[in-house]
Design a protein around this nucleic acid. Structure first.
Lengths: 344, 344
DNA sequence: AACCAATTTGCCACCGGTGGCAAGTGAATC
DNA sequence: GATTCACTTGCCACCGGTGGCAAATTGGTT
């Protein structure tokens, strides 16, 4: 357990003051070339690396980012995290993960406390927590850097990355319509989340362009889990009159639909078309592989992190200039087909 | 952006010295009851919470734990992370995640640098990085607290949580044998990882108890991904002579087997039994649902984190006393059946 | 040679806590 | 009433950096 070299050691050996060493570390302009070289040499010889806590204490920077989320799908979280970490490690930041309860009364306290306890330089907020305007407001007021991921443009460009779920859902509608489906059901996510309502509205809008209307009893609300996907699918598929196509708010629930269809002996896609939303790993693993909407999660994470770091490093304009919107795309696989008995 | 209360504010208002406030915060015994109460009142009125950086600087504690891993399965990582976070948030720690490259030359530097840069109090190391003895050695020498997750007991009890994958694989062997299978193939993980060899050896050992021997050309090495699962399954199932059962080193590869079997028109489990290892979310989603081995990942994470925090808080004996071993268990679902044509 | 501005460098206070030790307090003991 | 001792409390230095400002150096002008 050898002791860590300090800035004083470097200063002493290089024969300069610690203030100068500090300047070298922080890439200050006003350091003579010879001095800089000498100091850098000593730094690398001593394998010196500055104490982040001391640095943070003095400069109120921690090089720590936070990721705030509430019980996300494991696959989604993993994608996001990978993306964020990629940028972080390139730019010298570390990532602290922080689950929380969106619906808790103490969400605000909890998140703010988290930020100040760990002295984070900024946070990335995932849905559905990102939909909380009170949290966003509190973050803004506390002067923290933050970026939200969302399905709706809720904030200024520098604070948000949005995916146009509405348009994507409309595209799925168009695809269904073109396959000749008219009896279509939708398994929605919790209606209290914007991402759910966006997708539903987009889907309805898309269908209406073809004169198709979702019957109210063919809109069922799940909570985005596999289990509720199963429940909703049972309701739909055990009824007298069955839809020929089901669009689920995410891949997990779509997988549930496949399971129920299989257990009822309903052939997918011959008798029933099924589609999901996300295009996560599950979508390609199941049989038949799911037609779905690919959300560019990783890309959103990259954008969000870039924005965040730019706004931390006091370059808000640059942060605003990073693209703030991404477009999910339709991915056609095996779970959808032309409606039985229709020609094109 | 209101200013944060400091220890001095609390001290002034409570009419005590900051040293006393510090004592209250740290739960020191030698503080009078009346004083303590008064200070606590002020603390909560001011919503004071100590600055972790300053605290860390003075006491060399950061209340930050690290999670070190290399490209794990998303589902595995999520399970671990949830478990770790559960303990963390109860005990006032935060978690910093740190992916790294196991096979990189700079693994050691990278990890040590990570630890000292962020002044972590301790780290949890996941397989396969946990199998690196040089890293473990370096951690020990640097005096850092650490706990490894592994399939083999590589370290002292206080530094490790192991799952007995060998025994679990043997149990799968027994199960296969009892179903009457004799023509059995195994899709292994990368042989450079102990977790892979443990499972393979356990499986072989288990089979040998029934006089069954794995033919060399029915042992194929994948790399634990779905894609290699598919490749390996093709090799096995397109051959002249096919196995009646395939055991894959993990669920991802088992899912690949299901996909290939389906595309070749081989019925699972009627013509082919398939089993995986992990029991992650995927296992129950696929059709037919996978028979597999449930690894108590979350439990391992909980144990590891408890151990880690105990050993940080200087109670190594207690850390050693926390159970260090967990037993994965067989979960029978729909993908396995008695071999065709056999009675029991 | 004297002067000046621009550039480099150093000094010292400070960030917000903790640790060691001394001082103060009150009750018990003689 | 004086002495002792255990228990509380306060003082001050220190952790390892950064920021503001002054000092020193540099080189170009007049």
């Amino acid at each position: 357990m050898q002791k860590q070299a300090t800035i004083n050691d470097v200063a002493r050996i290089a024969g300069v003051s610690k203030r100068t060493v500090s300047r070298v570390i922080n890439g200050s302009l006003s350091v003579g070339d010879t001095t800089r070289t000498r100091v850098e040499k000593v730094i690398s010889e001593l394998k010196y690396s500055p104490n982040t806590q001391a640095r943070g204490l003095a400069s109120s920077r921690s090089y720590l980012l936070g990721l705030i989320y509430d019980n996300p799908d494991a696959l989604y979280l993993d994608d996001v995290q990978r993306g964020v970490l990629e940028v972080c490690s390139n730019l010298g930041y570390e990532l602290v993960v922080h689950p929380c309860r969106y619906r808790s009364e103490t969400l605000l306290q909890d998140c703010l406390r988290f930020m100040q306890r760990s002295k984070l330089d900024g946070v990335i907020v995932l849905p559905p927590v990102s939909e909380s305007e009170t949290l966003a407001q509190a973050l803004k007021e506390s002067g923290s850097a933050y970026v939200r991921l969302s399905s709706v443009a809720l904030d200024e460009a520098k604070h948000i990355v949005v995916s146009d779920d509405r348009a994507a859902a409309a595209e799925m509608a168009r695809y269904f319509a073109q396959l000749g489906h008219e009896h279509i059901a939708f398994i929605s996510g919790p209606q209290r989340y914007k991402s759910s309502t966006e997708r539903m509205e987009g889907f309805q809008l898309g269908l209406s362009a073809y004169g198709i209307k979702l019957q109210p009893d063919w809109i069922i609300e799940g909570n985005n889990t596999y289990e509720t996907g199963i429940e909703c699918a049972r309701q739909l598929l055990q009824a007298e009159e069955k839809p020929t196509a089901i669009f689920a708010n995410n891949d997990q629930m779509a997988a549930g639909v496949l399971k129920v269809a299989h257990s009822l002996g309903i052939k997918v896609p011959e008798q029933l078309s099924v589609a999901g939303f996300d295009d996560n790993m599950l979508a390609s693993r199941v049989i038949p592989a799911l037609t779905t909407i690919k959300r560019p999660v990783r890309q959103m994470a990259l954008l969000a992190t870039s924005k965040l770091i730019m706004s931390i490093e006091n370059n808000d304009k640059a942060a605003s200039n990073v693209a703030a919107k991404v477009a999910p795309t339709l991915v056609v696989r095996e779970s959808t087909a032309r409606v039985a008995g229709s020609s094109d």
